[in-house]
C-alpha cells in the first residue's frame, strides 16, 4: 500500500505512538493502562509503519528481530519475580524504592514485571504478524 500521506503521517505517528505506549506502561499502576495494553499499542505503531512502508523497511528500523524481545521480556519479568529471594523474602513480594522518582513516580518490582510483559507482548505480536506478512 503506497500512500504518500500515510507514509508521511507514520513518520510522526511512530514516535508519538511509542511514547504513548510507554506512557500507558508507566501510568498503569495508578490509572488505566499497563504493560499489556502498552505493548499492544507499541505493536500497533510498528504495524502501522509496516503498512505504509512495507514490512521489510519496518524490520530495518527495528534492527533486531522482534523474536529476540521475547526472551528479554521474559527474563526481566522472571528477575522481578525472583529478586525478593535475594532479600530473603518470598518470590513475587513487591519491592519499592523509598522515594518517588520525578516524572516516573514510584519505582518497584511491579514496574519491572510490567516492563517484561510489555516487551513480551511487542515481541509476540510483531513476530506473529511479520512472520505471516513476510511469508512468500
Amino acid at each position: 500500500m503506497k500512500s504518500a500521506i500515510l507514509q508521511t503521517a507514520t513518520r510522526y505517528l511512530l514516535p508519538i505512538l511509542l511514547l504513548f505506549s510507554f506512557f500507558l506502561l508507566l501510568r498503569g499502576h495508578y490509572y488505566p493502562g499497563g504493560g499489556f495494553v502498552g505493548g499492544l499499542v507499541a505493536a500497533i505503531a510498528f504495524v502501522l509503519h509496516s503498512f505504509a512502508n512495507g514490512t521489510a523497511n519496518t524490520m530495518k528500523i527495528l534492527r533486531y528481530k522482534p523474536l529476540s524481545l521475547i526472551p528479554i521480556g521474559l527474563a526481566i519479568s522472571t528477575l522481578s519475580v525472583v529478586a525478593p529471594l535475594l532479600f530473603g523474602l518470598p518470590p513475587m513480594t513487591g519491592l519499592w524504592f523509598e522515594e518517588p522518582i520525578p516524572v516516573i513516580g514510584m519505582i518497584g518490582s511491579a514496574l519491572f514485571f510490567d516492563l517484561g510483559v510489555y516487551l513480551v507482548v511487542i515481541g509476540v505480536v510483531l513476530t506473529i504478524l511479520f512472520t505471516i506478512a513476510l511469508e512468500q
Partner: peptide, 14 residues
C-alpha cells in the same frame, strides 16, 4: 499491599 491505585493492574502484576 501493592502500592497501586489501579486495582486491575495490581491484580495483574501483583
Amino acid at each position: 499491599l501493592a502500592k497501586g491505585k489501579n486495582v486491575v493492574n495490581t491484580i495483574l502484576v501483583d
